[in-house]
């Protein structure tokens, strides 16, 4: 009997190992932001923040915050040597123009067709899409980062999203705290399972079609 325990750090650790040196990466608010903490030391990625910079650095020490230097979540940040600032049109030119390699976004629902819903629950919560629609449209690879199950136990991975969509068939990779999935031809392909979870457990706890390939392997996050 395997008991599901939410583990956001494992999601961030696994996603951080996807990147190569030189990749331009945009990390969304919340869970995706954690990914920045786990990029391996021998890999140098260029973080883009849609409010207008590349070369995003770590949070400044207390007392060193600059009111004019924040990330897209309004948190104080720093800029690394070699970074640059620009206006919002240039920022979204970078994003929509295909100059971002990876975007990592949070999830309300993600389905096996690669559809993503993360900006609106009609009648309940309407935060708005911010930059997410442009990011999913323009980035070379779209990674959805999510805990596998809701607090209620419901699967976050769906056959078909029921909420208003942020992105239509744009999601390429989904990483949860139980496994690493690729979306191909309208199905989830389980590439890695995170022990102690097993492919059978994952199939049983996912409300979507999952293909377990012969090359599917365990991963220690």
């Amino acid at each position: 009997m395997i008991e599901y325990v939410e583990n956001k750090e494992n999601i961030a650790r696994r996603i951080a190992r996807i990147f190569k040196t030189g990749d331009v990466v945009n990390l969304g608010i919340g869970l995706p932001t954690l990914v920045g903490n786990f990029v391996p030391e021998d890999v140098t990625v260029i973080l883009q923040s849609e409010n207008g910079l590349i070369g995003l650095g770590p949070a400044p020490a207390p007392g060193k915050e600059d009111k004019d230097l924040t990330n897209a979540g309004a948190m104080p940040v720093s800029i690394l040597p070699g970074g640059a600032y620009f206006d919002s049109a240039t920022s979204f030119g970078i994003i929509r123009g295909g100059h971002v390699d990876y975007t990592v976004l949070g999830v309300l629902e993600v389905d096996q067709e690669g559809n993503l819903a993360n900006y609106k629950i009609p009648g309940k919560m309407v935060p708005g899409m911010g930059g997410a629609m442009d990011l999913t449209t323009g980035s070379r690879v779209v990674i959805a980062a999510t805990t596998h199950l809701e607090k209620s136990g419901a699967s976050k991975l769906k056959r078909r999203c029921s909420l208003p969509l942020t992105a239509v068939r744009e999601v390429d990779i989904v990483v949860t705290d139980v496994g690493y999935f690729e979306i191909l031809g309208g199905k989830y392909y389980l590439r890695e399972y995170f022990e102690p979870y097993t492919p059978d457990w994952i199939k049983e706890h996912t409300d979507a079609e999952i293909v377990v390939g012969e090359d599917c392997k365990p991963c220690f996050c």
Partner: peptide, 24 residues
């Protein structure tokens, strides 16, 4: 969408009637 908003404002300032975007 944020990129569309930026580009619609830019278009207004640049004498354009609008823009074509894949976003949305």
């Amino acid at each position: 969408p944020q990129g569309t908003l930026a580009e619609r404002i830019r278009a207004a300032g640049c004498g354009l009637g609008g823009i074509l975007t894949p976003t949305g």
